[in-house]
Design a protein around this nucleic acid. Structure first.
Lengths: 342, 342
DNA sequence: CTGAAAGCGCTAACAT
DNA sequence: ATGTTAGCGCTTTCAG
């Protein structure tokens, strides 16, 4: 932590001008036809004394902060924190830093965060948009702020985005449950939400149900529903309808479902959840899931954003990542066994 | 996202000088004896046009970035992410922002991150130090960089820190297990680590064991041990010693232990884990834990750091947060019942 | 090839 | 009480 050394110190020590040093440091040595000897001498000296440019001054001057803003629904959800981790790593490797925040599906908070990031002059945004953010995002878009949406998108907005193949995921999960002749009544638990990922998952479920000519049982929970209330509603839903199997639209809904089963001493219905969680692997029986390849998502997100910043995106990137159904005990063990276990 | 408006624009529009505006904006109105009328007029105008100072320029000028660096062991561990969330909130309320990173208990990575934060001129650090970081931290300390350690501390270093009462937590948990006459053999699973929190927990375990004049069974796992290997070792430890009960030093060790039990179809021993986890509440039986009050920790951390930044800490803050034993099924259900269940 | 100098937007010492 | 102005450290135009 030696005291900070300035570009002018370097110039002085080497008996040359700051301009020259700056050019060399910014890789414009040959463009400016600075001799290789000098270039090397400067670079060596810089390394020797461990000079690091003052990023603040650099940013103020160039208008580039080299900071990317990541706004996710909830950083403590393992799905989002895993994506964040990967994004962070790739960003670092490209000389960028990430500032991340949770917006808890609250449009007001999201707007504040975007404003905050804007004030901090972040160079680009990755956002999982809550409902009600259309105008703000549209504004960013109009101002040519680099922006990539993720997990869900705004249909009316022409932005880059990276999402899951939610329809297919829900369709396959539901079909899988229906394939078991034991399962007559297959329900679906989702959120009161018009977000695209929720709509697509619902459609996937409906398609599978329709293909099998079964009745649909759909329960929606309020996004900010209190836990106890949600558990109660889920219990009522599963119990009153005597459901054989349930597909849960998110990992935390599934967790609430498990809590309901436990609290009310119910038999565990066959089930599949969206997005994996440590808990699901250890649960007895283990919970089947539709998983997302988080590192693939992170990769697409960050590269799309960086390309946008560099102006290299020829066209709008609408990226759909395939997802995978991982069948575990919760959707295959026979109903009798289940009844004994729970 | 209207185009950025400058302090000079305000001065011009109002027909006054930038100094006056700057003084008013920085709350020095009365100190500089600026008339209340003008003050109000400026403030109102600022609000009306939505002026926000350019933080970059502000930082460059004042040398204060209003950014705090938070380096934790692993942001995807719910314990750390919960603390981070609370810290973030309090920091925001005080006009600070948080940049957080995981260092995965890797001293090299931690050093890089500290350097990175230093280059970014963060105003202060909150760090869970891995082993081997003594010198770097000592350097920060010598340079009067505001710094608070957390979760563990470096005994040879005179820094502020906020830690748990680990000794007491481990002692009580072990005593609780030993209080059950069924439990003759109570083991302890920890890490190869000399970090203070690990040492204190071990001592707490030993004290309880000694008080009961029992034999100690201690298994340490390598910090970066591969999961499969760790599970195997835990199985061997519990099985070969025919342990009645086990105390786990961290939540992820306990999770590995549960995986071992499941994989090898063992009977679940009585158990207690450090640091709660969603999984523990839903597990059958629910897992007893020694919990930390994350929001109390976050509070102490951020306030100590902010006071340090403002030079308000008269003396070294060595804060020890009490912890609480939450008894759940895993440490009370009779051994017979457990054998049936698992 | 290299140097002088003008700013990026803001704060605060100095002047009035 | 309020205005003038010199930087914070860097990049980059313009002149050599």
């Amino acid at each position: 932590m030696r005291k900070r050394i300035l570009i002018s110190d370097i110039a002085k020590s080497l008996g040359i001008s700051v301009t020259t040093v700056s050019f060399i440091l910014n890789g414009k040595a040959k463009e400016k036809r600075i001799s290789e000897g000098l270039t090397k001498r400067v670079l060596d000296y810089v390394k020797k004394v461990g000079y690091k440019p003052n990023q603040l001054a650099q940013s103020l001057r160039t208008g580039q902060s080299k900071i990317l803003g990541l706004i996710v629904e909830d950083i403590s959800n393992p799905f989002f924190s895993n994506v964040a981790k990967d994004i962070e790593k790739i960003a670092y490797d490209n000389g960028y830093h990430i500032i991340y925040c949770s917006m808890d599906n609250d449009a007001t908070k999201a707007k504040e965060l975007i404003q905050l990031f804007y004030d901090r002059q972040v160079d680009g945004y990755i956002i999982t948009p809550p409902e009600g953010l259309e105008d703000t995002l549209s504004n960013l878009n109009k101002n040519n702020v680099p922006l990539v949406l993720f997990d869900r998108y705004i249909p009316t907005l022409e932005t880059h985005y990276v999402v899951l193949d939610n329809f297919k995921g829900a369709f396959e999960a539901t079909s899988h449950l229906l394939a078991n002749p034991q399962n007559k009544k297959v329900g679906y638990v989702s959120l009161y939400s018009n977000q695209t990922q929720m709509r697509d998952r619902l459609e996937g479920y409906m398609k599978a149900i329709d293909d099998h000519q079964q009745q649909a049982y759909i329960k929606k929970i309020k996004i900010d529903e209190e836990e106890g209330e949600a558990i109660e509603q889920l219990h009522a839903f599963m119990h009153d309808n005597r459901l054989d199997a349930v597909l849960f639209a998110t990992n935390y809904l599934a967790i609430d479902g498990l809590k309901a089963v436990k609290q009310y001493g119910m038999n565990l219905p066959h089930m599949v959840a969206f997005d994996d969680h440590t808990l699901f692997k250890l649960h007895e029986p283990a919970i089947s899931v539709v998983t997302q390849d988080t590192s693939a998502i992170a990769n697409e997100l960050i590269h799309t954003l960086l390309n946008e910043i560099k102006g290299k995106n020829k066209e709008l990137q609408k990226i759909v990542i395939p997802c995978e159904l991982q069948v575990r005990g919760s959707s295959v063990i026979s109903q009798e066994t289940l009844e004994q276990t729970s």
